[in-house]
Design a binder for these strands. Structure first.
Lengths: 139, 139
DNA sequence: TACAACAATGCAACTTTGTTGCAAAATATT
DNA sequence: AATATTTTGCAACAAAGTTGCATTGTTGTA
């Protein structure tokens, strides 16, 4: 586990620090997406708020995590798959946000369908975000 | 024009005030989506910041405008079509955000494709947001 | 039209969220 | 182990969003 974490950091040419190891392992443990606030709650005793901001920013730039757009002004982050490289994210899976429990899922098995745009519009990034009830909150 | 604006407000059982008329007409004039900041810039001399927050909130609740999720922590708002009612938004069109000029478009002619979700997940709202270059910034 | 009831606004104060510069501490490099 | 480089924490700040309350504006009714 710790081995895997440090491996990822090393692969992306980042120095191994406590903050980065902790935050990265939070993503691995939960499996789901995390907002800045989530991380702050789970590690505010260990790290300064500023460190979390900077760490997340670094991870996004290096292609370790990607952002998920939401309607409620709270960007969430989730682990990227291996194909993501620095500055070039290739996350074409669907994101699901549960209205009940607030959990954000990466639905890897469903990919975002291609869409034809009007003349003059060219797509670089496509995000499909679905909200509703997740499999834990159903019934 | 002014007639149309007051009509919309009346239809949604909202009292006709200067702030609401002004903000609603801003949406009609630009045609595109607006962030809170955009509105504040265009009317900060006329209204207090708080009034804009509350007006936007009211409009969303009444189904006059809808929010568009973005990855950069800046919720944008756009006019709803007639099918939207209080608390029940039915916007199934695609949203496009230009990386160059920042303009947010509602692409009404393209509708969001239906997506099959894993067992236990049920969708209530689906948002498809595409970023790239718009028809004014191309070439 | 004037009046009362109600709703919306502005103001002030506050909370939350995010940013920046710089010295101290930790990490990497030799 | 010593130096160069990076990262972190702190403080101070800027921006974004919220809340309570007195004042103003709007609506419905007489």
């Amino acid at each position: 586990m710790q081995e895997k974490i440090t491996d990822i950091l090393r692969k992306h040419q980042l120095s191994i620090t406590e903050a980065r190891k902790k935050i990265l392992s939070l993503f691995w443990e939960t499996g789901n997406a995390l907002a800045h606030g989530d991380i702050e709650q789970k590690s505010s005793e260990d790290f300064d708020r500023v460190t979390i901001y900077r760490t997340l920013q670094t991870f996004v730039e290096k292609g370790i995590i990607h952002t998920i757009p939401t309607s409620d002004n709270s960007v969430r982050y989730a682990l990227c798959k291996d194909e993501c490289a620095a500055g070039h994210h290739h996350d074409d899976h669907v994101h699901f946000i549960c209205d009940d429990c607030g959990t954000t899922y990466c639905i890897d098995e469903v990919s975002v369908p291609k869409v034809k745009l009007p003349k003059g519009f060219s797509a670089i990034q496509t995000d499909l975000v679905i909200s509703g009830t997740c499999n834990k909150c159903e019934q």
